[in-house]
Design a protein around this nucleic acid. Structure first.
Length: 786
DNA sequence: TTTAGCTCAATTTTT
DNA sequence: TTGAGCTAAA
């Protein structure tokens, strides 16, 4: 054995030792860094751990493990030092040691890790920072859009934009499109939302308006390409970009401007992409361009691709090895999250999909409990069942509320469940329904900041110019717009000059004072701390007074609190951001969704859509509304590809559960104001018998599709308490088993069990008509019968 | 210019 | 059923 071979063997031993916590597949994924790498990471397979370790490995060892011969002459003393450090862990991490180990070590500056969500990016940064004592500020672990944003900021002038450009979210974009449709006087067969969708698709195909016009063949709506064109003009005039533009212009800079490509490609030597199954064609193109100067590794799970409807093409992952013929694939199939019953069931469901790479998850977590299937009369019982299961788990098994997660296909389903949880005193949180940043008061205040930052942002400007009311109405704005078009001036410049336009007559005064307000704050920006500026602004424009006089006391309070929340958000940002400026703050808010603020601090059950649940895990999961037409959803029933996406969603939902999974379908469901019969979802039949039990018995056989029978009208709760976190007050009445009681809805029954909790008791009551229910004494409002 | 009442539409949404 | 956005009247 030559010195060099000994050295090689020894350092492999050392590296293996360092990564001994990982399983062999995970290690392979970490070590393999020579060629394009596709990591197919099943649900719960320790994907983030692998990414973090891989980044650490690249920083420390480069591609040491797989190179056959060290590229330098190994001396006897190198070997001795290595041997010594191997025996004595305390010398392991010294500089001398890592120098000897390194073959082609990467600097943090040369690495780029791309994710979809800010949350994932933040988690990555945090874990890298915690694991390696390294300066990771130069390591980019960012979302797709932030990566593009950083590049575009630097080269905005090449694209004809100012550096301080605004970013439009979905809402802003639709506002702009609506205003164009209105101007064109197009009969509203196509809503702004629909047109936005087409434009978005065009951008994802990297088509300019002209190119799009050539291929768009919907004659009925031939104006769409024109709207696309006008929309782009409008954005440019407002010095603004939408989300798709960020990627679009990112690609453009890298393709059309060699000097940009050169700088970028000289920098990034290793590009990692997370959730690759969610990339759309343009994003995937962007990734290829970014990775041109180095190596690439993508991580994803084709079985968890659930955003095809937004343009994601799971084909990107399926065809990775066509694009990179020398690509290597590693499958991570060991699951560390769920029990075998849950995994086997999920595997069996997803196996019904045809377009997939194919993977089978396994675990060493034991068989666990079977999945429980419940077939219930209506959405009313669905809520009740969930409430009673949660209470039971809380009392009997000492579980926390936050161990429970309720999943549904559409937000509209949350109401029934909320009602049931409220009436049982179970604290809960609903995620994703009304995002913080989408609330009107927040959008308004942010629009002010945006206009102060970029007064040409016409869409935001028109949002706030009369909010609070300043007597500047649509008529005036239309006049200004007409003048701007006539004189080929920017909207804001006409406002500024309002007094020199006789056409504006009386309105000119109001317009000028609005401009003066904006200008005053623009001048304050460089010197005034942002939180102070914000507070002054909030007071000066009289927004709070407007809230007070427009809304009732409750609404006013909550809206004002939201604005205060925004203020503390600003303070926080200024305190710890890299770029604590107004521009920096707006950039952040533009790219940060409210789900990022998902705080899991308090003990509350969690309600969300199945889409929202991706990446999360809970001890016990309820999948509700397991009915044909709801899940899989009605619009998906016609196409195999859509059904397959629903099936992937089912797979995602099932694999969120660690220990226990409940699946619920109802025989009749009230949704969107109409009662519709429920037929158990086709996915139910795809779950093996041995992994699932059916609760109840009669009429509950999941494998015989139940024909809906007309059900007696369910009693409905009319009085709904408003509190989400109900107060607990001790009961005066003490209940005990054997007692007869009357419930407002369920009627008369006998208490069969009473379990005392801190200030309340969980009662199991056998009702004569309604059957057995579990209720909290404080909330059940029972009457005792002697 | 504002607002009350009416119509219409309603999967999923990382940025 | 719920809500957002538009029209008609004040």
């Amino acid at each position: 054995m030559t010195l060099s071979e000994k050295f090689q063997a020894l350092r492999r031993q050392i590296i293996d030792e360092e990564y001994s916590d990982l399983n062999p597949r995970q290690r392979e994924a970490v070590y393999y860094s020579d060629a394009p790498l596709l990591i197919l990471a099943g649900a719960g397979s320790g994907k983030t751990t692998v990414i973090v370790n891989k980044i650490g490995y690249l920083l420390k060892y480069g591609n040491t493990y797989n190179c056959d011969e060290p590229s330098f002459d190994v001396t006897q003393s190198d070997l001795e030092y290595l041997e010594e450090s191997f025996r004595d862990p305390s010398i392991r991490l010294t500089n001398g040691y890592s120098f000897l180990m390194r073959e082609a070590r990467y600097s943090p500056y040369e690495l780029l890790a791309i994710t979809f969500t800010n949350k994932a990016a933040a988690e990555l940064r945090e874990r890298i920072g915690a694991k390696f004592n390294l300066d990771t500020t130069s390591l980019w672990a960012l979302t797709f859009h932030s990566v593009a944003m950083r590049i575009i900021r630097q080269y905005a002038h090449l694209l004809g934009f100012e550096k301080n450009f605004s970013v439009y979210d979905e809402n802003d974009s639709i506002r702009l499109i609506d205003s164009i449709l209105k101007r064109l006087n197009i009969n509203q067969q196509y809503t702004g939302k629909k047109v936005k969708h087409y434009i978005s698709q065009a951008k994802m195909s990297y088509q300019t308006p002209e190119e799009f016009a050539d291929v768009f063949d919907d004659r009925q709506n031939s104006h769409v390409p024109l709207v696309y064109d006008l929309y782009q003009q409008g954005l440019k005039e407002a010095n603004a970009m939408d989300f798709d533009d960020l990627i679009f212009y990112g690609v453009k800079l890298l393709e059309d401007f060699p000097e940009v490509a050169e700088r970028v490609n000289n920098r990034f030597k290793y590009v990692l992409v997370d959730e690759f199954q969610d990339t759309n064609d343009l994003q995937s193109r962007f990734v290829r361009l970014l990775a041109k100067g180095g190596k690439i590794c993508v991580v994803g799970d084709d079985d968890q691709s659930i955003y095809r409807f937004m343009g994601a093409s799971p084909d990107n992952i399926l065809s990775f090895d066509h694009i990179y013929p020398d690509a290597m694939t590693v499958r991570l199939e060991q699951n560390y999250r769920s029990t075998e019953n849950i995994l086997d069931a999920a595997n069996s469901v997803i196996a019904h999909n045809r377009s997939r790479k194919g993977k089978t998850l396994w675990s060493e977590n034991g068989t666990g409990e079977k999945i429980t299937y419940h077939n219930l009369p209506s959405q009313f019982e669905e809520g009740q069942l969930i409430a009673s299961k949660i209470l039971e788990g809380k009392v009997r098994q000492g579980k926390k509320y936050s161990d429970y997660c309720v999943l549904y296909r559409t937000h509209a389903q949350s109401n029934n469940i909320e009602t049931a949880l409220r009436s049982n005193g179970i604290p809960y949180r609903v995620f994703g329904s009304l995002a913080f940043y989408k609330r009107k008061e927040i959008q308004d205040m942010l629009a002010y900041l945006n206009v102060i930052n970029n007064p040409y942002d016409y869409t935001r400007l028109s949002r706030i110019i009369n909010e609070p009311k300043r007597g500047i109405g649509d008529t005036t704005l239309e006049k200004v717009l007409a003048l701007a078009v006539r004189d080929e001036r920017k909207f804001y410049d006409v406002l500024k000059d309002a007094k020199s336009y006789p056409e504006l007559s009386k309105a000119a005064e109001k317009l000028t004072s609005f401009v003066a307000l904006i200008e005053k704050y623009r001048e304050m920006v460089p010197t005034e701390p942002l939180p102070d500026l914000f507070e002054k602004l909030y007071g000066e424009i009289g927004y709070e007074n407007m809230l007070k006089s427009t809304y009732g006391l409750e609404d006013y309070k909550s809206k004002h609190e939201n604005v205060m929340e925004l203020l503390s958000n600003i303070k926080q940002f200024i305190a710890d951001a890299d770029d604590p400026t107004l521009g920096g703050y707006l950039e952040q808010t533009a790219l940060v969704s409210a789900t990022d603020t998902l705080d899991d601090g308090d003990d509350a059950a969690v309600l969300m859509t199945m889409h929202c649940a991706k990446g999360l895990e809970y001890d016990t999961v309820f999948i509700t509304g397991f009915e044909e037409g709801l899940f899989p959803s009605m619009p998906s029933l016609g196409s195999t590809a859509d059904i397959e996406e629903e099936r992937r969603l089912c797979y995602v939902a099932m694999t969120r559960a660690k220990k226990k999974l409940h699946i619920i379908s109802t025989r009749s469901r009230l949704l969107y104001g109409t009662v519709r019969p429920g037929i158990p979802s086709r996915f139910l039949e795809e779950i093996p018998h041995e992994n699932m039990e059916t609760a109840g018995g009669i009429n509950h056989d999941p494998y015989a599709r139940v024909q809906p029978k007309p059900q007696p009208r369910q009693p409905r709760i009319t009085q709904i308490p408003v509190t989400v976190m109900p107060e607990r007050h001790s009961t005066a009445v003490k209940y005990s088993a054997g007692q007869r009681v009357r419930h407002k809805i369920f009627g008369e029954g006998v208490i069969t069990e009473a379990v005392n909790m801190s200030s309340d008791s969980l009662l199991t009551i056998e009702f004569e008509k309604a059957g057995v229910k579990k209720l909290m004494a404080n909330f059940a409002k029972l009457e005792t019968i002697d």
